[in-house]
């Protein structure tokens, strides 16, 4: 049985509190990646690429940079949060002697990571709005978030699984470089997925990250949702949530 008041909420609150301790550094770190891409591709390549899929490249790129931030932050918060609590600060053992369950603990951590990620996405959105000639159609925010919610749950869960399993901090960075980053870059962040060779395109369209970037862009620019992308994202979010909870419970009862 889940205990929201004693288990999930206090841990959720803890993640937000940890994050707010060093919010200036956190914000700068969050902005670094999308702004670098924005400067390099958006401004640097602007003269070479005019319109992509009928919109200026900057407009094409911006939604992906917001989604990228959300997913990276979800992964990072999940992975480092769990790593800190399980291996470094050993707080998990302190939580476990409280009258709550391990599911409460992991769900609190996942919700925390999810919220932090969405909050950071909002910061990047604001900064891009100031820098770029992008105008957000606020009415399309709903459809966009319909993709971003499951996406950030998915990446927080992947993060928490990595943080639960790997004892060494370099492993978390390695997984990010080897698995997370390629997945993110393949999903139509910088260019339309139709540019992929027809032979691998079917695989690409089933990647959750394609749903996030290709689908997310379409949602934000036109408000259009597809059934395939919605299914992929919500199913993989559900699956990863189940897997993360199971893994955590397993690992802790060893």
């Amino acid at each position: 049985m889940l205990n929201f008041k004693q288990g999930i909420f206090p841990l959720y609150q803890k993640v937000l509190r940890q994050e707010s301790q060093s919010w200036i550094a956190e914000t700068l770190t969050t902005l670094a990646v999308p702004l670098s891409f924005f400067l390099a591709f958006g401004l640097g390549l602007r003269g070479y690429i005019s319109n992509v899929n009928g919109v200026p490249y900057l407009v094409f790129l911006a939604p992906g940079l917001i989604s990228l931030t959300i997913m990276l932050e979800a992964y990072r918060t999940g992975a480092w949060g769990l790593w800190l609590d399980r291996w470094y600060q050993k707080m998990i053992n302190e939580y476990r002697i409280k009258p709550i369950t391990t599911s409460d603990i992991i769900i609190g951590e996942i919700l925390g990571g999810f919220t932090v990620a969405l909050f950071k996405g909002a910061i990047v959105t604001l900064v891009l709005l100031i820098l770029a000639p992008v105008s957000v159609h606020w009415k399309y925010l709903g459809p966009y978030l319909f993709y971003m919610f499951p996406g950030s749950i998915l990446f927080t869960c992947i993060g928490t699984m990595v943080g639960t399993m790997f004892r060494k901090p370099d492993q978390i960075a390695q997984i990010q470089t080897i698995v997370i980053t390629p997945l993110l870059y393949l999903g139509g962040l910088f260019f339309p997925i139709q540019a992929f060779p027809a032979s691998i395109l079917p695989i690409i369209t089933w990647l959750p990250t394609t749903a996030l970037f290709d689908g997310g862009r379409e949602a934000l620019l036109s408000g259009h949702l597809t059934i395939q992308y919605s299914l992929i994202l919500w199913l993989s979010a559900g699956l990863s949530f189940w897997a993360a909870t199971l893994l955590f419970n397993r690992k802790l009862s060893e």
């Binding site: 803890k14 940890q18 609590d85 050993k90 053992n93």
Partner: peptide
Amino acid sequence: SQDNHFDRYL
């Protein structure tokens, strides 16, 4: 516990 475990960010 044997070592002092704290949340070092709080």
